[in-house]
């Protein structure tokens, strides 16, 4: 036929194509611009120190030995608060997930209390528990508790009913249904909840330490700000980011190990 034309390609539905190294390059360009701007006087180093200065400040803190003191105090609060909140949240979420009365009582209660910014309760908790560690740990635990409850009972809801019916049809006792079907089935949702609760814990940690602590990364950042030591301030921020990154990586590893079947 004379009138023959190729059919043109009209698009693949905007499906993303992986671009190698793009993320690393983007990151490097941003840092380079920042460094360049500071070195050439476009930005005052007092207000925004160069990335190399920030890293140097972090190195100084490390050699001076103060770094570990701040980090260790923060870690104790973070781990203590998160574990407490998570244990309580898992228990409450489980009760609400599998027990009708628990759900009837719990869901409205959690919905009502969840929106309270937990840091606003710190002054009250200080009155109750004193200015020491307990009030900070309690604030973090409270902040972790609610998202854990919600993640847990939603994850239990998301377990296919059909699997539970299957287990019942084979006569599995309720305890086994819970242990062998409900909990493993809810695990992906619970682990996803850990991501949210750890980031909340980190925010509350820093806030609580800024309100009333002598040591801790939050306290350190605040003090550096008061003294206009912006390189140290940003070193602290960098440290918090690294902590968050480490937690995220740890959770990814945990998911890989526990959810290999997915």
């Amino acid at each position: 036929m004379a009138d023959r034309r190729p059919v043109p390609f009209r698009g693949g539905g905007f499906s993303p194509i992986p671009v190698r190294h793009a993320a690393a390059i983007g990151f490097a360009v941003l840092l380079a611009l920042w460094e360049f701007a500071v070195r050439h006087g476009l930005v005052s180093p007092l207000f925004l120190p160069a990335p190399t200065t920030v890293v140097a400040a972090l190195g100084d803190l490390w050699t001076a030995g103060t770094l570990w003191q701040h980090v260790s105090e923060s870690l104790v609060r973070l781990i203590g608060g998160w574990c407490l909140g998570t244990l309580a949240g898992l228990a409450a979420g489980l009760a609400m997930g599998v027990w009708s009365l628990g759900r009837a009582v719990g869901v409205p209660l959690v919905s009502a209390l969840f929106p309270i910014p937990k840091i606003s309760l710190l002054p009250l908790l200080i009155l109750w528990l004193g200015i020491g560690e307990a009030s900070k740990i309690a604030t973090i635990a409270l902040g972790v508790f609610f998202p854990t409850v919600i993640a847990t009972y939603s994850a239990i809801d998301a377990v296919p009913r059909n699997l539970i019916r299957m287990a019942q049809s084979f006569g599995l006792p309720a305890r086994d249904v819970l242990r062998k079907i409900v909990l493993p089935g809810a695990l992906p949702g619970i682990l996803a909840g850990f991501r949210i609760s750890t980031s909340i814990a980190l925010i509350l940690l820093v806030s609580a330490e800024m309100i009333g602590a002598q040591y801790g990364i939050g306290a350190f950042v605040l003090q550096a700000g008061n003294l206009m030591l912006t390189d140290q301030l940003l070193a602290g921020v960098l440290l918090i980011s690294l902590l968050g990154l480490a937690i995220g990586t740890g959770l990814t590893q945990l998911e890989r190990r526990l959810l290999r079947w997915r």
Partner: peptide
């Protein structure tokens, strides 16, 4: 079951064993 109702986190043998373990 129509949709098989297998536990995705258990192997084939372990899915069969589920009916026996208790």
């Amino acid at each position: 079951f129509q949709d098989f109702a297998l536990l995705p986190w258990r192997s084939v043998a372990s899915n069969v064993a589920l009916a026996l373990e208790h």
